[in-house]
Computed example of a mutant assay.
Amino acid sequence: MPRHHETRELPYSAEQMFALVTDIARYPEFLPWVVALRVRADSDREAVADMIVGFKGLRESFSCRVHKRAPDKVVVDYIDGPMRHLNNEWHFTPLDGGGCKVDFMVDFSFRSRVFEALAGQMFDKALRKMIAAFETRADALYGAGSVTSSDGRSASLSG
């Protein structure tokens, strides 16, 4: 069962990254392999969505509940689909001088041995591509290297 944890420091505020991650209706616009997504319910504290992912002719759908704890935490709970389990968490911690630290964790396993074998072979590459898609989306939305703090001031981070 694949598990991954990654930490990145990004030049965007915790509020900005929280908004990006919780805007799940937009995932098909920028996330690889997301073929379709339907938001069944959405509020400030929680969303429920159905997602269809596809890769090389394989398509699977699953449902999840997204718990939103603005501006520092997002927890995704698996409801139904081809997996045995799926746990996903995002934590956003403001950094001195602007930007934030993003902690990302995902842990899952498939019911199907075929899917489990495929996931094991491609897991690292797929996760790197997915994380890069979130970073690229943040750059497009907020401008590379700029950050707006919770008090509305702009700052710039280099390197």
Rank of each mutant, 00 (worst) to 15 (best):
Q121W: 14
L118R: 02
Q121Y: 13
H91A: 12
S154M: 13
T136K: 13
A49Y: 05
R40E: 14
G81H: 04
H5M: 15
A19T: 12
F92L: 01
I79R: 04
A126D: 06
P11T: 01
E135W: 05
D72S: 15
A119F: 00
A119D: 08
P94H: 05
L37P: 07
G81Q: 05
D107Y: 08
R137D: 08
H4E: 12
S146C: 12
I52K: 12
V53M: 12
F55I: 11
D77R: 05
K129F: 06
A140T: 13
S158E: 11
G152H: 06
V75I: 15
F108W: 05
F92D: 02
A25S: 14
F18K: 03
V21D: 02
G97R: 05
M83R: 09
P32E: 03
K125D: 07
P71K: 00
H67C: 10
G145C: 05
R26D: 12
R8N: 10
N88P: 00
A133L: 09
N88V: 14
A132C: 10
F115V: 07
Y78D: 04
L86N: 00
F18G: 03
R113W: 09
I79F: 06
D72Q: 15
R111C: 09
S149Q: 15
F104D: 02
M17P: 05
V147P: 02
F108A: 09
L157P: 01
E9H: 11
E135L: 09
T93K: 12
V114T: 14
L157E: 03
H67P: 06
P32Y: 01
E29I: 07
L118N: 01
S150D: 11
W33G: 02
S61Y: 11
K129I: 10
S43M: 07
F123V: 00
S149A: 14
L157M: 04
A133T: 07
A140L: 10
T22N: 04
I24S: 03
F104T: 01
L141H: 06
V102E: 00
V48F: 11
S156A: 15
D107I: 10
E9P: 08
F110H: 01
T7M: 11
F30N: 05
G145I: 04
H4C: 09
Y142L: 11
A132R: 13
A126E: 04
D77C: 08
A14K: 04
F30M: 06
A41V: 07
A119P: 03
S13M: 02
F104S: 03
F55Y: 12
F18T: 02
L10T: 01
K73N: 14
V102I: 04
D103M: 09
G98M: 01
P82W: 00
H85E: 12
P71D: 08
F55N: 08
D107P: 02
L141P: 08
L20F: 06
P94N: 04
D151V: 10
V76E: 00
Y27P: 02
A41Y: 13
G145R: 05
G57L: 00
E15Y: 06
A155C: 08
S43E: 09
H5N: 14
G98I: 07
L37R: 03
S154V: 13
F104Q: 03
H67N: 10
M17I: 05
H91W: 14
E116H: 06
